[in-house]
């Protein structure tokens, strides 16, 4: 994966040539039905980016992180991130929702540029199910195995989930 394109962005990467399954607004409305969405932007220092990259085990190229907090009846229901990354040079976007407890509550593919067989395979989704911050993230990192035939897309999906969790942890620590 080209590290240049691996960045957490909200709307920054083009979805040209990508099949869009859900728009961001649709995905947020489904994840947080009837709730208020509060958009926040975090600006990470170089050191914070490095800390996130070390925790995730994948590059974090941008210090600008957009968060979408779902506030339901005044209570934080979760925080959504949109990770856009290239798979075979075509953009792919994954929404990752982190629960208030710091675990992945939802990971949903919003758009994918490659042919259908290059979408992240089921085994990779299974591996990130319920993944949380901290030691578990580091341990599971070593246990994540590629699946033949869809290695690039699968790795990209798992990398995205790890990157989001690590950034979420760094931002939470700052707060």
């Amino acid at each position: 994966m080209s590290a240049l394109f691996a960045a957490i962005v909200a709307l920054g990467l083009s979805t040209a040539n990508a099949e869009v399954l859900l728009s961001m607004d649709e995905a947020l409305a489904l994840a947080f039905p009837g709730c208020e969405i509060q958009q926040r932007t975090a600006y990470l220092s170089y050191e914070q980016r490095q800390a996130a990259a070390e925790a995730a085990g994948v590059p974090v190229e941008s210090g600008l992180v957009r968060q979408y907090q779902g506030i339901c009846d005044g209570v934080l229901a979760g925080t959504a991130y949109f990770d856009s990354h290239p798979v075979r040079e075509l953009p792919s976007t994954l929404m990752v929702v982190v629960s208030p407890e710091g675990r992945i509550a939802r990971a949903e593919l919003l758009s994918f540029g490659g042919p259908d067989e290059h979408r992240p395979p089921p085994a990779f989704y299974a591996q990130i199910h319920g993944l949380g911050l901290g030691r578990e993230l580091a341990v599971r990192r070593k246990a994540l195995h590629p699946v033949s035939g869809a290695t690039l897309s699968g790795r990209a999906a798992v990398d995205a989930a790890r990157r989001v969790l690590a950034l979420h942890g760094v931002i939470r620590a700052v707060e």
Binding site: L21, L22, R106, A107, E108, L109, R119, P120, P121, P122, A123, F124, Y125, A126, I128, H129, G130
Partner: peptide, 11 residues
């Protein structure tokens, strides 16, 4: 509408 995500520990 087509959606791809994970649920019940699998895709």
């Amino acid at each position: 509408v087509e959606r791809r995500l994970f649920a019940m520990g699998t895709a």
